[in-house]
């Protein structure tokens, strides 16, 4: 255990949506350089967890704490969390008609840089930067000139999320099912992109149903989330055990939370 402040520290987090309790006491510590995979069946609260950390107002935190680099994340607005370095890769990226991807990303990057007291990036320098980063997820110029996610295929949308992660260089990335709806080629592109963005000073929390993704992005820790609780945590091997047994084998653990 290192003595440095964790990037993310979640303590007994409870949350509801429309009055229904979705998270029933989650605790999780994520340190710099780590990749954590959260696995679980549909409706277990995996996506909700990532959205709550990012600040989606659709969910209500009823108790618990979320600290980011020791700071209380729950009191920050959505954009301030992003400016502090929290990034959410969406399972269903949203279309923003009429706003070009390049312009969108430059605006976002400059908002973040301004917040950090850095000068805004010039148009030319940004164009070059964007070009380099798009190569990472094999996105071409035509896609970057299109409106954000408008008319993108499922795979293109997911690649666009990783591109945005590459541009904004967050300290904490939450990836909500980056593999859903992808064919094997797209999956490799996305996974390869994420792996290249893995750095000693950042951390990644990825949510997935399937072990398959973890063949490409090797996690340091795996957590099994069932019915709003983490029922078991372990190393890489846990994912393989999960694949062998299925979630059924873990469901009995929900009765007696750790």
């Amino acid at each position: 255990m290192s003595n440095t402040i964790p990037i993310l520290e979640v303590r007994d987090l409870h949350a509801t949506v429309a009055g229904k309790e979705i998270l029933k006491g989650i605790s999780l510590t994520v340190r710099a350089g780590e990749v954590h995979a959260i696995m679980g069946p549909n409706g277990s609260g995996k996506s909700t967890f990532t959205h709550i950390v990012a600040g989606n107002p659709a969910f209500t935190v009823t108790s618990g704490q979320v600290l980011y680099k020791g700071k209380d994340l729950l009191t920050m607005s959505v954009d301030v969390r992003a400016k502090e370095g929290v990034f959410l890769g969406f399972q269903y990226p949203v279309e923003v008609p009429g706003v070009r991807t390049a312009q969108f990303l430059r605006t976002a990057l400059n908002a973040i840089r301004t917040y950090r007291g850095q000068p805004e990036i010039e148009f030319k320098a940004f164009t070059q930067f964007l070009k380099e980063k798009s190569a990472l997820v094999e996105m071409n110029q035509a896609m970057i000139n299109r409106s954000v996610n408008e008319g993108f295929s499922g795979g293109e949308k997911k690649r666009n999320e990783i591109l945005q992660m590459a541009i904004l260089e967050p300290a904490l990335t939450l990836l909500d099912e980056p593999d859903s709806g992808l064919d094997i080629d797209s999956l490799k592109i996305v996974a390869n992109g994420v792996t290249q963005l893995r750095k000693p000073d950042n951390a990644i929390v990825l949510v997935t149903h399937y072990q398959r993704l973890l063949n490409y992005i090797t996690p340091d820790f795996v957590h099994v989330l069932i019915d709003g609780r983490i029922v078991k945590s372990g190393r890489r091997e846990l994912a393989l055990e999960l694949e062998a047994k299925g979630y059924e084998g873990f469901k009995k653990l929900t009765a007696a939370p750790a």
């Binding site: 990012a54 600040g55 989606n56 107002p57 659709a58 607005s77 959505v78 954009d79 969390r81 992003a82 400016k83 990034f87 959410l88 969406f90 990226p93 949203v94 923003v96 008609p97 009429g98 706003v99 969108f104 990303l105 605006t107 976002a108 990057l109 908002a111 973040i112 917040y115 409106s147 945005q164 904004l168």
Partner: peptide, 20 residues
């Protein structure tokens, strides 16, 4: 939520969407 999650403040996010 999507636009703000990229670091753009609420009001600017709305203008961006309206501009689009």
């Amino acid at each position: 939520f999507y636009v703000m999650q990229r670091g753009i403040a609420a009001e600017d996010a709305k203008f961006m969407i309206i501009n689009g």
